[in-house]
Amino acid sequence: MSDKIVSEYTKEKKVGEGTYAVVYLGTKQSTGRKIAIKEIKTSEFKDGLDMSAIREVKYLQEINHINVIELVDIFMAYNNLNLVLEYLPTDLEVVIKDQNILFTPADIKSWMLMTLRGVYHCHRNFILHRDLKPNNLLISPDGQIKVADFGLARAIPAPYDVLTSNVVTRWYRAPELLLGAKHYTSAVDVWSLGIIFAELMLRIPYLPGQNDVDQIDVTFRALGTPTDKDWPGVSKFSTYTQLQTYPPPSRDELRKRFIAASENALDLMSGMLTMNPQKRWTTIQCLQSEYFTELPPPSDPSTIKLNKD
């Protein structure tokens, strides 16, 4: 079967290389549609198909949503696994870093709305992403945000599952992960989104820890060290006794840090960055935030200009 599919997709340009895959730009011959091909280097793994590849295939097969990257096709060629994905020319990290791109509060609102919709769809399909960061929020030619890279994803755990806390890229890691929790929920994804929201408003990374230990300090210095009062049981984490105690920021301090943010925007951000994962807002609560219904309305994605021309 593969021969037919192999000739259906061309690889034209190598655009990236990760630990387990090479990404090419290409074209779907029958339609002329531009696509990206993620070629997974299977031969290099002694344990057969790599876990990240398996997770990516497993979860992308299940999700069909405008704000999640589309898996167009899969095929085998020359002992490599090829994932055919929709072509997405840029991502939020590039946009945030590019000083030549101007974006407005309405654009930020639009991006947050699309991202939350994509992540909500994952969560209601019982899928945790576990690696949300600007670099994994890709943008389509018509301006739609696409949640991508499911290499760390997993099913939403059952209450008795024991998990590894070594997930999520450092700056976007929720406090329960920093404290080494053996169990966590979809709330870890919401935290990452809260950090991304802050980063969009500040245009610099919000909590850039130098290393894992520093990340704990940076996080609690900015948002306050959690206590048993607002997060019952937090002091039981073995790492808790070594923590510096910082007070949580006052509303005024937050207003000063996020000058352009409305009160509703600050409410949303604080809801997403609630220390206690059980009290942290869910994606539904976030989507129902008044931030999205107050003025200005979110920009129409297709009108957000990301090119200088």
Binding site: I54, Q61, N79
Partner: peptide, 14 residues
């Protein structure tokens, strides 16, 4: 046969 199996499973694992 890992590849062959994955292909026969239509890459559907969940």
């Amino acid at each position: 046969y890992e590849f062959r199996i994955l292909e026969s499973l239509k890459f559907s694992l969940l």
